[in-house]
């Protein structure tokens, strides 16, 4: 466990552009929907221990980017490495091995409504370790729930807990298999500002304590600057800016500073026709 984070660890084949400290590399990624390039030439790397925040207005392709990395969709162009494996080439069976290394927190939480909170957390454990006795699984579930302070709510159904609790329960489920990597899509969307702060602190604390590398998608600037160690600003499917939070703040591109200062995006000022032309990509 400890040695795997060390740059001197050599038991895994390294290939592609992954350096010794990198856990993810994305190269020239493109996703095309009906002739429109929703992602276009996206390349970046994620270092171990980083919290990379991907920012951008809604519809700029953040979720699409995440879906390519976690293997829910396959990109038309480009390659993706996770932990030394090029995932766009893998078969379903091979990719299952990669899946065990990461957890995903979906935008809506995506808890299974027919199961209790505890059963939701137990599900990945039971499926990947079918021979574990119930006792062990129960203890693991309790541990995960205590990380997010939900131990007392294990017996409740997702419909019976608040929005913030759902997000925390989903986080516990994402962390159930002790992943090295955590992906979050808009984890704080739909929460009130106090819950957002709470959830950000929780994310930060857990990533540090558990040594998890995180890739977080968000459009909430305050939240982004609170948790990020590196940032990417996505605009119309391309990376507009990349760097540490300080570098992003110091960026002189007016589009970037407008975005991080929450100035109205051009979208609001455009008429319907211009808007359609923009999203259909005819102007570029």
């Amino acid at each position: 466990m400890i040695s795997s984070a060390s740059p001197f660890n050599s038991d895994q084949p390294r290939n592609g552009p992954l350096g010794p400290d990198d856990i993810i590399a994305v190269e020239d990624l493109a996703k095309i929907y009906g002739g429109r390039r929703v992602l276009d030439g996206v390349s970046f790397r994620v270092k171990r221990g980083d919290i990379l925040v991907i920012m951008g207005g809604s519809g700029c392709g953040k979720s699409t980017l995440l879906r390519q990395i976690i293997g829910l969709q396959h990109p038309e162009e480009g390659r993706i490495w996770i932990e030394g494996r090029e995932i766009t080439q893998l078969t379903e069976g091979e990719f299952n091995e990669v899946r065990k290394k990461f957890g995903v927190l979906f935008q809506s939480g995506a808890l299974f409504n027919s199961m209790t909170v505890g059963e939701n957390v137990a599900l990945p454990i039971r499926e990947h370790f079918p021979n574990q006795p119930d006792m062990t699984v129960d203890i693991m579930v309790k541990m995960k729930l205590s990380l997010v302070e939900l131990t007392k709510f294990a017996e409740l159904k997702p419909a019976e807990i608040s929005g913030g609790m759902k997000k925390r329960a989903a986080l516990a489920r994402a962390l159930a298999l002790d992943p090295k990597l955590l992906f979050c899509d808009e984890p704080t969307a739909g929460l009130d500002p106090i819950r957002v702060t709470e959830f950000d602190d929780l994310t930060l604390r857990l990533c540090r304590e558990l040594g998890v590398t995180a890739v977080v998608v968000t459009h909430d600037m305050t939240s982004a600057f609170r948790i990020a160690t590196r940032m990417i600003l996505l605009h119309k499917g391309k990376i507009m800016a990349e760097g540490t939070p300080d570098e992003i703040r110091a960026n002189t591109n007016p589009l970037v500073s407008d975005f991080i200062n929450g100035k109205a995006e051009t979208e609001v000022r455009e008429d319907a026709e211009g808007y359609l032309r923009a999203i259909l990509g005819e102007d570029n």
């Binding site: 879906r67 899946r99 990461f102 990945p124 990947h128």
Partner: peptide, 9 residues
């Protein structure tokens, strides 16, 4: 939820 199932393998 279907996506979540898939990412859990």
């Amino acid at each position: 939820e279907v996506d979540a199932l898939e990412t859990m393998g």
